[in-house]
Design a protein around this nucleic acid. Structure first.
Length: 108
DNA sequence: CGCATGACAGTCG
DNA sequence: GCGACTGCCATGC
């Protein structure tokens, strides 16, 4: 596990219940502002090996990237977490977006 | 070792 | 505000 990947995992695990984060946000905090793709890969790779809260990770549009059954499942889980979806099918990042500022302080 | 890819993001028209 | 293009970086073949 590379440092970046580990960092991403740590950040994702740090997301509290009822909050969500975007791939770009996670990537930026992890140390690579342009590594949203790697965050995606980490989720794909580790979500089945570890118990990562992948359902709390969304894209910059505040919407789930999946449209299949996994997407439906993710949406259902988020609703269980207390998150309310908007009529456009996305989530209000202003309210549910999680900003782990304490992690950024450690970076400094 | 080089090419292709990916649950994305940011910018441009 | 939305659709198309490009950038990024690790992983897989």
């Amino acid at each position: 596990m590379k440092p970046f990947t580990k960092r991403v995992v740590d950040i994702i695990c740090a997301i509290p219940k009822g909050k969500v984060m975007t791939y770009g946000q996670i990537a930026k905090i992890a140390g690579s502002p342009r590594a949203a793709r790697q965050v995606v890969r980490v989720l794909h790779t580790l979500s089945e090996k570890y118990q990562l809260p992948w359902q709390r990770v969304l894209n910059s549009k505040g919407c789930i990237g999946l449209t299949g059954e996994h997407g439906q499942l993710q949406r259902r889980i988020l609703e269980e977490e207390g998150i309310v979806f908007q009529q456009n099918g996305s989530i209000n990042l202003i309210e549910y977006g999680y900003e782990p500022l304490h992690l950024m302080e450690e970076m400094e």
